[in-house]
Simulated assay, not measured.
Amino acid sequence: MEHTRWLDDTEQQTWRAFLAAQRLVSEKVERRLQAGAGMPQAYYEILVRLSEAPDRTLRMSVLADSAMSSRSRVSHAVARMEQTGWIERRACPSDRRGQLAVLTDEGFRVLADAAPDHVESVREAVFDALSPAQQAALRDACETVVAHLSDGAEWPVSEDAGPDGPDAVRAS
């Protein structure tokens, strides 16, 4: 039987601080996004990913990977956003089984309208409390954990790594 590698006092304090910060930031940002834009953070993230993609289009599998979500969860969210007119699904021309998610003009407008308040909530919840050095340390730590837990996979997903011109909404 393996020996349990218990957290020492400093590690325990770090873990609990991480959990509390993650929950408080998520709750604050989610609450404000719901109140202001009437959408959950998961929908906002999908809209951002599509706004950054070439032609505002991604394969559903790439969209799920880039949003770090399950394919079924993204498929359900996209179906709901199709009903609102924010996203369209299309058949993938290069793969008959694949589907593409396409951000509509209405979806882009909704995202562009939501972005300023969302960015302000993120700034208030995280960046206003941190010095530039703390911001750099937070980014480094988070990227290290993401790389560790994603089996070294590239992050962000390469097919979705950058904005598609001046049109993209950079507000995740």
Rank of each mutant, 00 (worst) to 15 (best):
V78E: 05
G36F: 09
L63A: 05
Y44D: 02
A129M: 12
D113P: 00
E2W: 10
E154D: 09
Y43V: 11
W155S: 06
L24F: 05
R5N: 01
P163H: 10
C92S: 12
R23H: 09
W6A: 13
E120Y: 13
R71I: 07
R59C: 01
V145C: 09
M60P: 00
H76C: 01
I87L: 12
F18N: 07
A147I: 02
E45C: 04
V78P: 03
R139H: 14
A115Q: 10
F18G: 05
M81N: 01
R90S: 09
W86S: 06
G107V: 05
P54R: 13
R73V: 08
W155F: 15
E143Y: 15
D105E: 11
D164K: 04
E27F: 06
F108N: 03
Q12C: 06
D105Q: 05
M1D: 04
G38P: 13
W15K: 09
E30A: 13
E45D: 08
M1G: 12
V145E: 13
V102D: 01
P93R: 12
G98N: 04
V157H: 15
L103G: 00
V119M: 15
K28M: 01
M1H: 08
G85L: 08
L111V: 02
I46H: 02
S121I: 05
P166K: 14
V48K: 02
F127V: 06
S69F: 01
S131R: 11
D105P: 00
Q12D: 07
A133K: 13
S26T: 08
A42E: 14
R5C: 00
V157F: 11
H76F: 09
S66P: 03
S70Y: 09
Q22F: 06
T84L: 12
Q135N: 03
A129R: 15
Q135M: 13
S158I: 10
V62W: 10
R89T: 15
G98Q: 03
A133I: 11
A20H: 11
W15H: 10
E106R: 14
V126D: 03
P116F: 09
S150L: 14
Q134K: 07
S66A: 15
R71C: 00
Q99S: 11
S75K: 06
R23W: 07
A171G: 04
Q83C: 04
P40K: 11
W155G: 00
A17K: 12
S69A: 15
A141V: 07
A141T: 13
G162H: 13
R31Q: 12
E159P: 07
E52C: 12
A42W: 09
G162A: 14
E27N: 08
L7Y: 08
P116M: 10
T104H: 04
H76V: 10
W155N: 06
C142Y: 14
H148M: 13
Q99I: 05
T57S: 03
V145G: 02
W86I: 07
S26C: 02
E159Y: 06
V145N: 03
T57Y: 02
E124V: 14
V29D: 03
V126W: 05
P163R: 15
Q22L: 08
P54E: 08
G85K: 07
R139Q: 15
A53P: 03
C142F: 14
R96A: 12
I46A: 08
R23C: 04
S75W: 02
W155Y: 15
L50Y: 04
V25P: 00
L47D: 03
D55H: 09
Q83W: 02
E52T: 03
P93Q: 11
E120W: 13
T84W: 02
H76E: 11
A64P: 07
Q34H: 10
V169K: 05
F127L: 14
V145T: 11
